[in-house]
Design a protein around this nucleic acid. Structure first.
Lengths: 235, 235
DNA sequence: TATTTTTAATTGACTGGCCAATCAATAAAA
DNA sequence: TTTTATTGATTGGCCAGTCAATTAAAAATA
């Protein structure tokens, strides 16, 4: 069987298998055997390439975050106004794959793991920071920086919350509804803070629709995107 | 050593110890020995009173949720206007004990566990529902029910999100700041929807995308509906 | 009251199973 | 013949759960 050049193939297969196993199982307490079986190799091989279970888990997380980051970047670059970019970030957070129960389960497991593993925490925080500064950067062109920071924090929290609650499957909110809720938040905050994108009109009447508001940012490209999860963190 | 009437004492001590151990450890993968040590008894005794580790964990979760519920009820009863009651619910969610790192870690672990354990999921869902209906009840006196449901969903998500994010300790947002963010959300939404808190709502209800629990209108039907159509003047 | 019996509390010692990690052996490229 | 890929078999440790034994309070009995 030994055919050279298998290493990268196996590594990828094992990381994919890990993600799937963790998602299915809903916990990091999956056995190397199960992961290996998913990947169609022996447990010993997993140890051979990754050294330990912990290293395999970390590699899997790194891989996932990298993937998500790439997708987010792509989505943001696909549109051009700051407001559209904001929507792109939100949209990508609730993209289909992200909303799949197994993906949510895996994320939750990683989050929980971050309470124990410093390295896991580091990775999640790093990712969160990147995304956050992205949000703040766009928001800062629409309102004072101080407000931008606050609103970014709120939006990120809401995305995380919607995401987590999805994991409970209590009241399955659709992805579209989740996006709408988050956009509502953004719009309402921007309006309060300084009129949509510009002026300083303290709260315009509701029911009347603000031109900007209902923007349909759906210029989205990617059917391929394996979007990013919530936006974490801070700086 | 045998002194009668120890059962309730031990049970409580063991549940407290479980919460602490889980919080410290940041995972449900704590050993019965560790829990027992925290409680100052032998592992065998824990089994004696709870039958299994799983039962002990479930009892601990039930206990925690009960506690939270009691606190919430008390806080809500202490004030009298709907608006105040809303603030009370928010405030209680971010109360000190809740915000301690170990408590947050424990919560995360339980959320993750809910992906695996149906019973754990049931308990958390029940709690989430109660919180939600509580919010909706108050909000419904301040705005149309449809909006109340939507806003409650958003507020609950934000609370959960802020809470969970605290677990990453990337950007330690203070409890006060968390409360402020949530209140901001409420205020902004109420303002948009029908005047600040008080009556005065001549506006037709802003038609938001009905997030509606349970519904899953998205995906299939309109691709064009995906964007973020908040407030269009519906009336 | 003194003595015996029952009952609750508690633990040490043990078991069976699981699983991460190791390693020597094998198979096939190079 | 060297190198790479791959695995079966094994080991060592850990841990949930069991059980019989011990202690002392309480209840029953004399």
């Amino acid at each position: 069987m030994p055919k050279v050049g298998m290493e990268p193939v196996r590594r990828r297969a094992l990381m994919d298998a890990t993600l799937k196993a963790v998602g299915d199982h809903g916990s990091l307490a999956v056995t190397m055997s199960e992961i290996a079986r998913h990947a169609g190799v022996s447990p010993a091989l997993a140890h051979h390439y990754f050294g330990s279970k912990e290293q395999l888990l970390l590699a899997t997380i790194r891989n996932l975050l990298q993937q998500l980051r790439d997708d987010a970047v792509k989505a943001v670059q696909a549109v051009h106004t700051p407001r559209e970019k904001l929507s792109a970030i939100i949209r990508v957070s609730f993209h289909a794959d992200q909303f799949a129960p197994e993906t949510i389960a895996a994320w939750l497991a990683f989050y929980a793991e971050a309470q124990r593993s410093e390295e896991t925490r580091r990775l999640l925080v790093l990712y969160a920071r990147r995304l956050r500064s992205n949000l703040v950067a766009r928001l800062a062109t629409l309102c004072p920086r101080e407000d931008a920071v606050r609103i970014a924090e709120g939006a990120a929290a809401m995305i995380d919350g919607l995401y987590i609650r999805q994991g409970l499957r209590a009241a399955p909110i659709s992805a579209a509804a989740s996006i709408a809720l988050t956009e509502d938040y953004l719009e309402a905050q921007l309006r309060v803070v300084g009129g949509t994108a510009s002026g300083a009109a303290p709260h315009p009447p509701a029911g009347t629709f603000s031109p900007q508001a209902g923007r349909r940012t759906d210029t989205a490209p990617s059917p391929s995107a394996v979007p990013s999860p919530r936006l974490r963190g801070e700086g």
